[in-house]
Design a protein around this nucleic acid. Sequence first.
DNA 1: GTACGCATAGAAAGCGCTTTCCATCGCGAG
DNA 2: CTCGCGATGGAAAGCGCTTTCTATGCGTAC
Lengths: 375, 375
Amino acid sequence: MTVTLADVAARAGVSAATVSRVLNSNYPVAEATRDRVLRAVAELEYVANGPASALAAATSDLVGILVNDVADPFFGVLASAVQAEMSDGGGPGGEKLAVVCNTGGSPERELTYLTLLHRQRAGAVVLTGGAVEDSAHTAALAARIARLAAAGTQVVLCGRPPLPAAAAGAHAAEAPAANGPRAAGRAAARAVGAGPAPLTVAFDNRGGARALTEHLVGLGHRRIGCVAGPERLTTTRHRLEGHRAALAAHGVEDAPGRTVHGAYDRASGYAAAHELLRRDDRLTAVVAANDTVALGVCAALRERGLRVPEDVSVAGFDDLPFSADAVPALTTVRLPLGHAGALAGRLAMGREPAPPAGVTLLSSELVIRNSTAPL
Amino acid sequence: MTVTLADVAARAGVSAATVSRVLNSNYPVAEATRDRVLRAVAELEYVANGPASALAAATSDLVGILVNDVADPFFGVLASAVQAEMSDGGGPGGEKLAVVCNTGGSPERELTYLTLLHRQRAGAVVLTGGAVEDSAHTAALAARIARLAAAGTQVVLCGRPPLPAAAAGAHAAEAPAANGPRAAGRAAARAVGAGPAPLTVAFDNRGGARALTEHLVGLGHRRIGCVAGPERLTTTRHRLEGHRAALAAHGVEDAPGRTVHGAYDRASGYAAAHELLRRDDRLTAVVAANDTVALGVCAALRERGLRVPEDVSVAGFDDLPFSADAVPALTTVRLPLGHAGALAGRLAMGREPAPPAGVTLLSSELVIRNSTAPL
DNA sequence: GTACGCATAGAAAGCGCTTTCCATCGCGAG
DNA sequence: CTCGCGATGGAAAGCGCTTTCTATGCGTAC
């Protein structure tokens, strides 16, 4: 059946231990011996048994990335950046198997994947995706993360807010009891990376949203509709807060009914825009939950015979790849997706020193294009 | 340290064997015993050690999906469909860890990931992404796939053409020698699923391209530019063949210089359109390699003061989510991405009987929108 | 009443690696 | 010339599961 370490050892005329040492290059092996072993490996086309290695070494070369929806460009770009950083075994440890897991935005699947990755003894996990503001789920998530950390897996949150301190502390007391010198050694090695709360790389959604709305207000707009994201998401709340702060700062009334919640997809934007105009057809601007939603909003406006930006200005969020090509090109808030992903990846692989507080807040940039115009 | 099977067994007052049997439900266990075990599992928050299970059972619950680029909607949609089908442990076997691996379009990374998945003893692999027409790579790929198949991993190609018969046959002779009754049993079990060539779910690119160009010809266009995909990809060749077949069938001359190759991204479309018009500014239509490229083409045309579709008709391919929202909405060829992904996933999980020849060719559908108009 | 069969549970042998001891060898120091 | 030490390589003990093979009850048929 399959070629095993022993086969390689036999062929090279050395012991299994030596082959293992050559392959993991963590022990001095004479040049000649090494060559002999490598030749045998090549000749036999030996492929190590990952599970066996993982079992013996108590850690696998699997690293995971959780996203809400791979089909959503936002996550696609983010995942791609994280993956590039993680799979490259540049640092200590060779080639990693960086995999992305699609939660479909379901909190349950998020937990399931975390458990599956734990089960596989993944070396690191980057968790992206909307944080649901549900204390039960947050607690469950924090517990799951704490267990991963306790097992030596570095967890990094990316593009989502840090875990509430209270939740993060849960299960922290779960200090592993040492039994036997060997186990103690491992436990100690684990304790090192396992801080109280997972590292976080977040976006300044509030600031970005605020800048965006101020841009609109500066253009003279006063009747500004808002198509917000799903109600229970922290990201949604932050963007909404930024939006409202801008309105308040400039003395613009935030009339009730000017905000509609929806999903982060085009259909939501389309429906929400119609609803917004039904409530008040004198709107002169609309800020959307993100660029995809903005596209839906534009479609709805066009359907009603309103031109963008002549009649109504529309602004997006995220600056996804397609946004610059849309007609009109979208004014939006650029999130440093690639940078965030790379940073999260490096943090997860321990290739980057963790920031003091464990949280890095990345600022955004207002990108003004053609979908917004003076009143 | 971590909770193990033995801990659970001790707590439930049974043997480790019994706990294993309860968790894998592959052996009769008395109701009462089962309850006791499950309670212990819950109380101790036991999470099985995946590598250990995989080692002992010679198979893991990891299943992989390879894509060129997660940030590309085409692959995003495809991966999402495959993943949904594979992670759902509906059939035999519980919850699977369905992961997507991003090759970045690099043949080397494709091979690397295949090896890593092999190393992890993945249960199934769905391989998407462009097939490079390089015999060396194709042979390497076929060999790698044959080894996976020999190790019991079901490999399914999705959205790419079947492996050339010759290449697929390579390494097929590698019949595992049975040593010991147990090994023999396993080898036999493996031999079952490992046909000569991997199963394939492909799109009828040729037919789709042909229908699209015929649509343009039917509209009266004669000077039709073509922005084709990367030169060495089978998909590119097929689409080009369909395009040329349509021209030939209707007696339209395919003037030299009317075809430009580029990548499957917007920038390529943009550059290619400019190049095409530089060569012949009387073009009245352009077929693009895919929808993303079509967007780039539209941008370039617009920049030159040409209106779409009044001055120049533009057609895409794939019918990605954003295509219906583009302005103008893109005429394109709809590929049954979701269907293909689901089918590939089911095939990989052995939940669907393999078609006789091992190849399923999915037909496409012409979707006429506003980016094409009569001459 | 004894024997046989079925249902259920345990003992134990690995699965293929990693890693901790040890053993060995060669060599310069004392 | 002997001793000790650094540099290498081997033996073997697991890592935590799965899965035979075996043992124990118990109900049923003769």
